[in-house]
Design a protein around this nucleic acid. Sequence first.
DNA 1: ATGGCCCACATCGTGGGA
Length: 261
Amino acid sequence: MKFATWNVNSLKVRLPQVLDWLKATEVDVLCLQELKLADEHFPLQAFVDLGYEASWAGQKTYNGVAIVSRLPGTDVQRNIPGFEDPQRRIIAATLPAPDGPVRVISAYCPNGQSLDSDKYPYKLSWFAALRDWLEQELRAHPRLLVLGDYNVAPHDEDVHDPEKWAGQVLVSEPERRAFNELLGLGLSDAFRLFEQEPKQFSWWDYRQLGFRRNAGMRIDHVLVSDALKSACVSCVIDKEPRRLPQPSDHAPVVAQFDFGA
DNA sequence: ATGGCCCACATCGTGGGA
């Protein structure tokens, strides 16, 4: 069973690519970020026509997240409970799997803009709220996957030019600590469960021929709870959609699980 | 050479992304 995450940077623009990609990859669950569209404009029928269901939390112009899945989700939760926030960055749903339900969260973590921006303390407080909520979610749902755009490159090996980026947003120590606190709850970065080639990234700047130079960062992650860790058999970044005309600046990340049954 | 691109918006300039 395949679970994926993809920041599409406007679902309206990227919908044909997303549909083609679902057909080609046969992913079972796709977490989307940066829909950039209001709830009433979510293209549900296009997914239904391909045999998928969907739950979404949309927002005009900015943010917006969804979970597209072959089977419908239950206990759908939008936003972090108790964290007052007009920005739509979280949706959670419980999905059936061969050996029992899996709780899936699609997360679009704040960017932070820069260390001296007021968006930076918002990012850190958002991560603190996420951590506290995930602690509860893990207790209620030990079989948990948190997929999304974390806007944090966890280590220098996840950055094309660590010296140039040192101390900046996406790599700063407080952000990396916030990311590590999530791992401390009993979650693992699925990508690092496996041997990987160096210089593998999930986002490349549109400017400066970022993709062609592989000047990127690994900021999109699949976090897997201890209970699901042994079922995870691979985690790869699919760069193919990034090569297409009019691409998202992010590539999808796909984690495969062998649930037996 | 300190910015280059892309997306959205009751667009033609600005904010946001990362």
